[in-house]
Amino acid sequence: MWDYTEKVKDHFLNPRNVGEIDNPDGAGEVGSLACGDALRLTFKLDEKKRIKDVKFKTFGCASAIASSSALTEIIKGKTVEEAAKVTNQDIANYLGGLPVEKMHCSVMGREALEAAIANYRGQKVTKEDFEVVCNCFGVTDREITHAIRENDLKTVEQVTYYTKAGGGCGQCHPKIEAIIEKVRKEMDKEAPPPKPEKKKLTNIQKIKLIEDTLGREIIPALKADGGDLDLIDIEGNKVYVALRGSCSFCPSAEITLKQYVETKLREFVSDDIVVEEVRP
C-alpha cells in the first residue's frame, strides 16, 4: 500500500473544486485513458484578472486526484502571471509530499495548468511541435527537460517517476539519458557550483577528506557505470588507487583517472593532488 500523507488522503477523499466551468477563460487537458491518468482544468478570471474560479476533472489514482485538487486550491486567487510560476514541487509540497514513484501526478497538474494558461493567452501548445521521446506514454523532450530542470533530476529512473517517460517498453532510455546529460550540462553552466574553501589540512584531516571525497563524489559515479575504485595508499600529494569492476578493463581508464578522479580531489581536497593507478 502506498504511504500517502494525511493531506493526500484528505484531498482524495474530499476533493476540492471538482467539475467543469462553462465558458472558461482558460482550459487545459493533459493525459489520456491509455496512459492511465488525465486531467482537465478550467478557470475563470475576475475583473482584476485574478483566478476567481477553477475546477478540475481527473481520471487517475488517488495521488492524481489529490494533486489536481491541491492545484486548484493553490492557484485560486492568483493572477495568471503568479499562477504560471507554480511548479510541480509546489503541488507536492502542498500535499506534504508524494511517494517518489507518484511524482508524475504533480507534474501532470503543472502541465494542465500550463496548457490552460496557454489557452487563455491564445497560444497553441501541441505535442506536434516537439519530439516525442517516449512513445508508450507520449512524453516529449520538452516535458522531460522541464521536469529535469524543475526537480533537479539525475537518473532515468527519476525521469520515469516524474514524467512516466521510459516506464513502458524501455526503448527510449538511451534518449532520456542523452537529454539528462545535455540539460545537466546546461544547468552546470548556468550556475557553477560554489567551490568549497580549502584550508591547510593536517595529514589525518587530509586522508579523511580524500576518503570522504572518494566515497561521496567519485565512487558513486563510477559505480553507475559498473566500475569501482579502491584507495590503496596516500603519500604526500600522491594518491594511489586501483580501479575495479568494468573500470579496470575500460580503455578510457587512464582518462577516467586523470581527468575525473584528480579533478574531483583537487576541487575538494588540495590543488596539488596527483593520482596514480596501481595495477594488479
Binding site: W2, F12, L13, L33, G36, D37, F59, G60, C61, A62, A64, I65, E101, K102, C136, F137, T160, K164, G167, G168
Partner: peptide, 30 residues
Amino acid sequence: YVEGESILLLLSDLGICASSGSACTSGSLE
C-alpha cells in the same frame, strides 16, 4: 472510465479488501 487504485482505496476506506490489475497499484506504469 475510472482507475483501479482509486476504487481500491475507497473500498479500503470502508473495510473492503480487494485488488486491482491497474498500473498504479503496482508501482509500474502499465
